[in-house]
């Protein structure tokens, strides 16, 4: 149902513009297609990713909000819960039916009352607190567990890269 999805996306866009959460800027890449968004996420303070501005794209299905969007980092990332190709592994983006990691309860899954804002805030907190149990990037999980210092250095590089510095 493209019509209702479009109305809902418009409403969310409006809300994210009028009342933006701190460190998040999100909107359609092009007004000709409201089903593809770009979101900038500021790395949360006091975390390895502090200060970086990370680019992500969100691809919405035509039956949104019945199905969750697909989210992908376009900036380079090195994080236990982000696949090397940028896809984000986070429970809020999974429909109640599928459970790739087999440990999530349906309470934290996608449901139509979730929103883009909630997704982005969850991703922000994921950046702050990686969950090495649901490892999407094995190397990153391992480094996060065993060698925090190295991980921080790696993140620092990514932060600088994300700012084009």
């Amino acid at each position: 149902m493209v019509g209702s999805a479009l109305k809902r996306l418009m409403a969310e866009y409006k809300q994210l513009s009028l009342n933006p959460p701190e460190g998040i800027v999100a909107g359609p890449i092009n007004e000709d297609n409201f089903f593809e968004w770009e979101a900038l996420i500021l790395g949360p303070e006091d975390t390895p990713f502090e200060g970086g501005v990370f680019r992500t794209t969100l691809n919405f299905p035509t039956d949104y909000p019945m199905s969750p969007p697909k989210m992908k980092f376009t900036s380079d990332m090195f994080h236990p819960n982000i696949y090397p190709d940028g896809r984000v592994c986070i429970s809020i983006l999974h429909s109640p039916g599928d459970d790739p990691m087999g440990y999530e309860t349906s309470a934290e899954r996608w449901s139509p009352v979730q929103s883009i804002e909630k997704i982005l805030l969850s991703v922000m907190s994921m950046l702050a607190e990686p969950n090495p149990e649901s490892g999407a990037n094995v190397d990153a999980s391992k480094m996060w567990r065993d060698d925090q210092e190295q991980f921080v250095k790696r993140a620092e590089k990514l932060v600088r890269k994300s700012l084009d510095l």
Partner: peptide
Amino acid sequence: EQVLQTRRDELIRQARLKY
């Protein structure tokens, strides 16, 4: 679109300055 673009640029600019 313009407002969104300025907000994006502003976020990046602020982040750079802070960094």
